[in-house]
């Protein structure tokens, strides 16, 4: 898809399915920073997004309706919004081996009509053969987060 018309985006708070509300904050912060670092689009700061959410009176910013997405365009002036679902975030165990794992899915919706224009998902981390053999404990959570986001950015721009 041609994203050249999308110049600015707002990343809404991610929907957290892992029961750790801060995990979604962490992943969202990293995603926003890395997306901005690509220089492909301008990413609104989270304080600004929060202000827009409050002004548009969006009750559930993790899962906005089409109308609410259109409202955000008026408040924030962005071309698209990104919503996400954090499905896994934490350690997985198998026998004596353990490693960090993250699973994240994202959706991009354009703010003119509120329709979804892209979606992608990625899962990284988990127990590798080396973790089983050497008991290394896997990669640090931050590194796995970066891997997942890199994968999602590749999917977005490919």
């Amino acid at each position: 898809m041609d994203f050249s018309a999308v110049r600015s985006v707002a990343v809404l708070p991610f929907h957290d399915l892992v029961g750790d509300t801060r995990a979604a904050d962490r992943v969202r912060d990293t995603y926003m920073g890395m997306l901005l670092a690509t220089r492909a689009v301008y990413v609104l700061p989270s304080g600004e997004v929060n202000r827009g959410i409050a002004r548009a009176s969006i009750r559930n910013p993790q899962q906005p309706t089409t109308d609410e997405i259109v409202k955000l365009k008026k408040e924030l002036g962005v071309d698209a919004v990104i919503t996400g679902v954090l499905r896994e975030y934490g350690k997985v165990r198998s026998g004596s081996a353990e490693a960090n794992m993250i699973s994240l899915s994202l959706q991009m919706s354009e703010t003119q009509t509120g329709s979804t224009i892209w979606s992608g998902s990625s899962t990284k981390g988990g127990i590798s053969l080396a973790d089983r053999m050497l008991g290394t404990g896997g990669r640090p959570m931050n590194d796995v987060t970066v891997q997942v986001i890199n994968d999602l950015l590749d999917q977005l721009f490919e």
């Binding site: 609104l44 989270s46 304080g47 600004e48 997004v49 929060n50 202000r51």
Partner: peptide, 10 residues
């Protein structure tokens, strides 16, 4: 009060 960090307005 900036619960989510500063906005551009702030």
């Amino acid at each position: 009060i900036m619960q989510e960090g500063p906005s551009l307005e702030a």
